[in-house]
Design a protein around this nucleic acid. Sequence first.
DNA 1: GTCTATAAACCGATAGAC
DNA 2: GTCTATCGGTTTATAGAC
Lengths: 211, 211
Amino acid sequence: MRRSTRNDIMDTARRLFSERGYNAVSIQDLADELGISKGNVTYHFRRKEQIVEALLRLNAGAGLRLAVPGSIGALDTLFRRQYSVVRENAFYFWHYDQLAQLSPEISAMQRGAQQTLRNVYRDCFSELLASGMLRAEDAAGRKLADEQERLIDALILTAVYWLPYRRLMQDADDGGPEALCAQCWSLLIPWLSAEGRAALAELPADLPDET
Amino acid sequence: MRRSTRNDIMDTARRLFSERGYNAVSIQDLADELGISKGNVTYHFRRKEQIVEALLRLNAGAGLRLAVPGSIGALDTLFRRQYSVVRENAFYFWHYDQLAQLSPEISAMQRGAQQTLRNVYRDCFSELLASGMLRAEDAAGRKLADEQERLIDALILTAVYWLPYRRLMQDADDGGPEALCAQCWSLLIPWLSAEGRAALAELPADLPDET
DNA sequence: GTCTATAAACCGATAGAC
DNA sequence: GTCTATCGGTTTATAGAC
């Protein structure tokens, strides 16, 4: 059951753009990778940037269906999901400023996706605070209400730029989803209550055979 | 007292590469911006990537002269300095994967610069621990020795990608050096001793008239 | 829908006059 | 050192046959 050529182009573009960057992939490259002609690619996408716009539209739809994590385990799952999302769509985070120049629509969609994620975190913190997993004040006397936006900034920043950062530091190996999870939890631990820390410690061990 | 054409090219390239990315800036663009001919640019740099190499070489020299901060105030100064360094040389962090493909020398220089900064942080933490500004164990029972590398990752990640992140979140305004400092200190506060937090609170108020 | 062929523009880099 | 002119290659995008 073969999918449409249009979807094939999008899948290949997502992969090649993420691996080499938008500018480094020509329409000829996409056609060669798919074994079709260059003219066929431009039949489905008259302009190269329309491929990016289509990819972002697809991803924005998935972002809107994000469930708000209501437990420590669900939040861990969100971190892991962010890893795979960023891994599969790395190109438009890494090359944000290039892509934003392609069209205002792209820029707006990127910002919308980040805003959605920010709201998910806000709601998540609210739920975890209500269920006693987070505490309203940390050991240094800071209020979560004051620090929440900075904490969310740190979490998003970490997830979005995790792969290029790891590649910059130690080439090929990105450490898998576990490394990103560990980094995110390291940011959150000062705000976890004793119950929250206990729940985190009881999370099932990471499966090394999972990709 | 006019500087040499070679230096003019490097200054303009640093700026335009940071604004638009390496690939999006042609030699013609550089020549137009400087009001000189394209042939003149290629006279000084026979190949385009040699401009990047020259910029990195210049910056690597500056990085080696980084002093290890021995106090809370000196660390705050380091954060501010990182802001200006990243602001002026953003392009080779943001477009790492593009630039790394240009030459292995560029990749090695990037990694070297980050390693230098990492060592500065390691030595800094060691000094601040000895002077009682940091504590060896946080409120959640974590050992600084175990978390140090993750903390350094968070600090470097924040500084390196701060500008593109801010641009993604709220367009033009990057919040100035104060916003980056606040974010970095937010990461460090769980590890500050009472003396450290007092020293941080006593830092002179940010000068809004400073660039 | 898919192909071949090609237009039109731009790129980095080189050669040579001044 | 700086310029103009140009080469060879690549790009996106279009036109038209099948």
